[in-house]
Amino acid sequence: MATTSLNVHSVLVTGSNRGLGLNLVKRFLYLPTPPQWVFATSLKTDGAKLKDLNELKSQHQNLVVLQLDVTNPESINKAAEQVREHVRESGLTLLVNNAALRRKGDLETVTAEQMAAKYAVNTIGPHQVSQAFLPLLKTAAQRSPLQGLSCSKAAVVNISSAGGSIEVMLLWEKSQRVGYRCSKAALNMLTKCQSLVYKDYGILCVCIHPGWVKTGTSEADLTEEESTQGIVHVLATLSEKDNGTFVDWEGCKVPW
C-alpha cells in the first residue's frame, strides 16, 4: 500500500508500548518521508514491556518516548508541554488516540467499577488528551500551506471499534465486552462532536476501526502489521469529506 501522500511533521500515538500502538509507531517511522518527530506514549516508561519501543528509540533519533496516563490530567499536561518543547512553533500535526482497555465483561456480570474504568480510558481519556493537545494542533493547522482538511495538515484520529457500532455489533456471539462496546460507542459520538468544532480550526477528526486483529488467540482476520499498514494508507487518503466519519482500516465506512 502506497503512503507517499502522507507527509506529517509530527505525530503522537497514545498507548504505543505494544500492539497496534507500537506497530503504528513503526509505520510512521518507516514512511518514505518520516515525520520529524514521532511521539510514542506509554503508561510506564521502564520495564520489560518497553523493550521493543526502547529498541526502536535507539535506532531512530526522531522517536521520543513519553510517559502518559490518559486518565490523569497532570500527566497529560506534562506530556503536552514536553511535545511543545520539541515541535516548538510547528505544532503537532497528528494525534492518534489509541490507548484503550479491552477487558472482557458480559451483561450479567460487568460491574459499575469495570464500566467506569473503560469509560475513563476509552472515552474520557481521548477527550482529555485532545483538549490538552488542541493548541498544538491548531498551530499546525494555521502554519500549514494545505487547503481543506487532511492528516498532513492537522488531525485527531480516534482508534475505535466496530464492536462499538450499534448496527454491526461485531463478534457479539464470541464476546459481549459490554463496557468496551459502550465506551467505544461513546468515543464515536465524541469524534463526531470534535469534528463539528475542530473543523473551524482546520483540524480533521475521524474514528477508525482497525479490523479484527490477532492478539494472541488467532481466530482473528488480521495481523497487527496488516492493520496498521492499512490504517496509515487510509490516513493518507482522508480529506474534508471524511471529517466526522467512522471508517475501517481499508477506508470503508462503518455504520454507527
Rank of each mutant, 00 (worst) to 15 (best):
G15P: 06
V64R: 11
A117I: 07
H233Q: 15
V197Y: 12
R88F: 07
L56R: 10
L22Y: 13
S227C: 03
L134I: 00
L196T: 13
V8S: 00
L56S: 10
L187V: 05
K153A: 01
D242T: 09
K26D: 05
F28Y: 13
C193D: 12
Q194Y: 13
T3F: 07
I159G: 02
S239C: 14
G244N: 08
W172V: 08
N122E: 08
E173H: 12
V156E: 00
K51V: 13
G202P: 02
N97M: 02
A155S: 01
T71L: 06
A141K: 00
G230C: 13
K138W: 00
G244Q: 06
L50G: 03
Q142H: 01
S160C: 13
C182W: 07
L92V: 00
N62R: 13
V197F: 11
K57A: 14
N72K: 08
D221K: 15
I166R: 10
W256I: 11
Y30F: 11
V232M: 01
L50K: 07
V64Y: 04
Q229R: 12
A155F: 00
C207W: 05
T123H: 12
T237G: 14
L29D: 06
L190H: 09
A79P: 07
A80R: 03
S175A: 14
L31Q: 07
A162S: 15
T3V: 15
K153G: 01
V206Q: 08
I203P: 02
T109G: 05
N122W: 04
T217N: 14
R177Q: 13
V206G: 02
S130V: 01
K44I: 12
D221H: 14
P34F: 04
V157G: 01
T111I: 03
N98P: 07
S218G: 15
L53N: 10
F39H: 00
S5C: 12
P135V: 00
K51T: 15
D242V: 09
Y201W: 12
S227G: 02
E173Q: 13
K174N: 11
A220W: 08
T228Q: 07
G19Y: 12
K192N: 09
R18A: 09
L6P: 04
K51Q: 15
P126V: 05
N97E: 08
